[in-house]
Structure formats: C-alpha cells, structure tokens
Design a protein around this nucleic acid. Structure first.
Length: 274
DNA sequence: ACAAATACCTGTAAGC
DNA sequence: TGCTTACAGGTATTTG
C-alpha cells in the first residue's frame, strides 16, 4: 500500500531517471484513472512535448513538474505502480494487464499499472490547487506543529494520524507502526496526550518513516507495492506490529493483536501500547 | 457541522 | 475441485 515511504522511494528514482527528459508521447486508455479530465485527448495533450523539471512529493501524491508551470500529479491509490522500461527493453516487455497510462520519454517508458484503479493521474498548474487541503508532510512536521494538530476536534489518535488534512502521508500500515513505536493506543483521545507523549509520537513518526524510506518501503504478501524497477520493498521485515497478528511483540513478547476497527484492521500490542 | 459509513475496484485466499 | 465469500484500504461522497 503506497504511503509516504513508498511514494518517496518512487519519487527519488523517478527524479534520477526523468529530470531533463522530454515527454514525447502520452497514451491513456482508462478513463477512470484520469477521471478529473474530460477526455484522454485533454490529459495527453497537456503533457505531450513537456520537459520534466523536477519531481516532488506532497504526502502520498507525486508531483512531476514540467517546464512552463505544468504539473503532472500521480496518486498510486491502493494498487498503483509506476514502472520504468528503458527504451532498449520496450520491445521485449509487453505491457502488463491493467496498464492504463504510458508516458514515452526519449530514454524509455513510464508505465502506470493499477488493477484496482483507486489511483489517478491529472495535470494541473504549479500551485496544485487540488491538493490545497493537505496538511503538513508527516516527515517534515515539527513537534510544535504536531502538538497543534493533536488539539484538533477529532477524538481518536489513529484516524487523526491518517487524516490527510491534518498530516499528509500516513496510511493504515504506518499509523500502526508509528503508534507501536510511540507506545500509544490507536484509540487514545488526541487531546489527552501529555507533552512527553507528544514528543514520543513525533520521534516515532520521523524514525519510522525515515527507516521505511531507507528500506525502500513495505511490500506485503500480495506484493502490490513495487518500486519504479518492479522490485519489492524491504521494510516489511522490520514491522513490529502491522501484519504480525499472533507473533510476539518485539518489546514484551506478548502476541500482537488484530482488531477490526472502523472497517479496517488495526494491529497493536495491548500490553505495551497505552 | 461533524463523524461515521459506504462506494469505488480486482486479485488473492480462505472456506465449504 | 470449483464455487462463493471475505479482505486488502485511500479518497470522495453520502448518510446519520
């Protein structure tokens, strides 16, 4: 599930490959994946001929900035992948099922593949008004800002961490990992945290996200998340709580518990997390 | 006005 | 074996 660390991994690799390249051709075959555009012609026409300036990220959104103030925004949703195919390999690698968008650069193809089509791509202006609702990036937020966020109206800690309006970049997986490291329960009222607990949460957030980026993200059993080169991430091996139901808590040895909560799975150590 | 629930999707796996 | 059902969950929208 692409969250901040996975998107950041793709961002770095895409930047190293694509900056300075020209988009020679664009194909878009799934209307749902470009649903903000009236037509494929509109989407493709705005990109064709553009030269890639830089590749940024805001939360889980990838921002491919083209010369002239045009921005291609990519959100991978649940099952989206961006895959790089070098020009010399294009003929040998047929496009996989669910390949919905292809950008042809002078050095190769960037293919957008997404079975569940929760992800999307759209072209906008460089101020990206569509993302104005996003809160500060989870990896860049300071302790003081986090304190402000926690005083928000929402009550419970986990949905607040996952609310992109308050903090951008955290999803279900990293919320569980961060809360485990911070020794905090998912259902703690956000405004009940002591100053020390807020500091712990902040440290856990920065540490977890940076460690996951270092390991190129998490891929679960379904291996839905792949990087730009089709490789899985390594961070799942370092998970302490997520997807570890029944396995011992690395801190206290008691089994990790899985809860069905708010329609989603939550993994925690009921002994360590208070 | 806010928060909880639901719709959108398909591949995989568990269960009968 | 083959079918049905449950599940994964980010975001937008609907409902309460």
């Amino acid at each position: 599930m692409p969250e901040l660390p996975e998107v950041e991994t793709v961002r770095r690799d895409l930047a190293s490959l694509a900056v300075g390249r020209v988009i020679e051709q664009v194909e878009a075959t799934a209307p749902r994946c470009i649903r903000r555009h009236p037509s494929a012609e509109d989407f493709c026409g705005r990109l064709a001929g553009g030269r890639i300036g830089e590749v940024d990220r805001r939360g889980k959104y990838l921002l491919v900035r083209l010369d002239g103030g045009v921005v291609l925004v990519v959100h991978l949703g649940m099952s989206g992948q961006l895959l790089w195919v070098p020009a010399e390999a294009v003929a040998d690698e047929p496009r996989r099922k669910h390949t919905h968008v292809v950008l042809t650069l002078d050095a190769g193809e960037v293919r957008y593949v997404d079975p569940r089509t929760f992800g999307e791509l759209f072209v906008t202006t460089d101020d990206v008004p569509e993302l104005a609702h996003l809160g500060p990036d989870a990896i860049a937020v300071g302790p003081a800002d986090l304190k402000t966020v926690l005083r928000a109206r929402r009550t419970q800690l986990k949905p607040l961490l996952m609310d992109q309006r308050f903090l951008a970049g955290i999803g279900n997986l990293y919320a569980d990992e961060i809360l485990w490291l911070a020794k905090l329960r998912y259902d703690r009222p956000a405004d009940s945290l002591t100053a020390a607990e807020v500091r712990r949460l902040h440290a856990a957030m920065v540490e977890t996200l940076n460690a996951a980026i270092e390991r190129r993200g998490s891929s679960l059993a379904d291996e839905q998340y792949r990087d730009l080169f089709g490789a899985v991430g390594d961070y799942q091996a370092d998970h302490n709580a997520y997807d570890r139901e029944g396995k011992p808590c690395p801190r206290c040895g008691r089994p990790i518990v899985r809860l069905k909560w708010s329609g989603r799975s939550t993994f925690l150590c009921p002994r360590c997390q208070r």
